[in-house]
Every structure is written in C-alpha cells, then in structure tokens.
Amino acid sequence: MAEFSPLTLWRRILALPNESRAKTVAVAFMVALVCAALVSGTTVVLRPFQDANRAAERQERLDAMMAELPGMEDILARSGADSLEAVIVDLAAGAVAEGVDPAVFNRAAFAADPATSTELSADDDIAGLGRRSDFQQIYLLRDGDDLRLILLPVSAVGYGGRIEALLALEGDLNTVAGLSITGHSETPGLGARIAEPGWQALWPGKEIADETGEIRLHVARGGASSVFEIDGITGATRTGNAVSNMITFWMGPFGYGPLLDALRSGSFRP
C-alpha cells in the first residue's frame, strides 16, 4: 500500500507530465495561492505605514489650506490659538459626541462598523456612500466667542472611486472659505483636475444656500454664472456631479444639517 502524505502527493504532482490537465490546474492553483498570499501579506504589513503617510498628507493639506485663507493668520494671532480645535460631533444629534476619544477616532473604521454608522436608503444616499459614519471630526476656529471658520470633512463616490475633501465655511456658515480635495482616484488629466489649486481657488466666496435655505451650490456644466455655481471641468461631468452631490448631501439633513442648525441657534457648545 502506497504511503500517502502531503510530501508524496507534492512529489507526484511535480512528476506529472507538464501538459496533463491535473498538473495545469495544480500549477495554476499554486501560483495563484502564493501570489495572493504575497500581495495580501505585503498590503497588511505595510498598511500602517501608508496610513501614517496619508494622515501626514491630510494634515499638510489642512495647514496649506489654512495658510491660503485670507486673514487667517490675523485671527489665529488674535485668538491666541496656534491651531484649530478638533471636535468630534454626532451628526444626527448635531452635538458634541460624548464618549468618543479623538485619539482613537478613525473615520474609515467608524464608517464601516454597523454600530457607529447608519445605512442610507437609496433616495437619501445622493453621494453614493452606502453607509455614513455617525461621527465626524470637524475643526473650529474661534475668535473669542465668534466662530470664524469651520472645517468639515466631506466625501462622495466619484467616477473612479471615493472623493474626500475638506470644506471650509466662514462664520456665517453659508459662505465657502475654501475647498481642499484630500483624496480621489479620478481620471488623470480630466476628473483629477479637481485636485489642482487653480480649480479649488474658484470656491472661496461662493454660497451654499439661498435665502429660502435651499442648498444650491453646485458644479456647473461650463462656466459659472452665479454665486451658487463653480466652473465645470470639460470631460469630467461625472466627477463634477459627484462634487455637487457631495455638497448637497453633506449640507443636508443626513450630513451636517443638524450641526449647522445647532450652530446657528447657538445650542452647540463644544
């Protein structure tokens, strides 16, 4: 009786003629298995380094954006604060989230965990996010008691993947102070132009909603003709639509709507 062990099986497979069907399948399977293990292993091992790099880049963008906003240095100097206040908010309640430690807050993990995120119905999910984290880390800049600037992380699914951005609003909570795209995977040369400083420079001074409170800011097809429009990018209609939907969604009732209402009525106390 032939001894049957993994080693003899291995030898028997190797001894098969190369053109036999069994060997073809076995080799294809082994190569796929080894390559899959290699790729997944590298990704898992290197993920922390890459996340640290991305976080550093986000911080850099935040700093760069702060440096570009007009008059920001004056406000910083007068308020005595050398940086922004980071606050974690509960989106649905429009209030400071109790019991969420900023040190452990991780947006991606919170958005994926059913316990800390909300599934959006197809009608509400205009930004294509699927799930939305219940908590977000926002940044405030205050001069005494006056709110001067609020930075809100926003995201939407674009043509090539998720678009992440920081939207800065002035103290009136309706005028855009700036938009900084912090992450995207749009088509190079077309949709990817949203990440260019020239396009982002179109945003400051635009207004989110009109007097009736309707959210109107969007990326136009072609040139902008009002204070609620941003010049579109030729050949990147779907990216432009995604950015428009991103603003509509995050300024609306499922995004920062409750928080902005609370800020306007003065009930939000960070």
């Binding site: 190797l14 053109e19 060997k23 080799v27």
Partner: peptide, 10 residues
C-alpha cells in the same frame, strides 16, 4: 513545471 498552455498567464 510551468505547463506550456498557461505559461503566459503564470
């Protein structure tokens, strides 16, 4: 040990 039929894919 690479079968000729699938060598390019491998």
């Amino acid at each position: 040990h690479i079968p000729n039929a699938i060598r390019l894919i491998v």
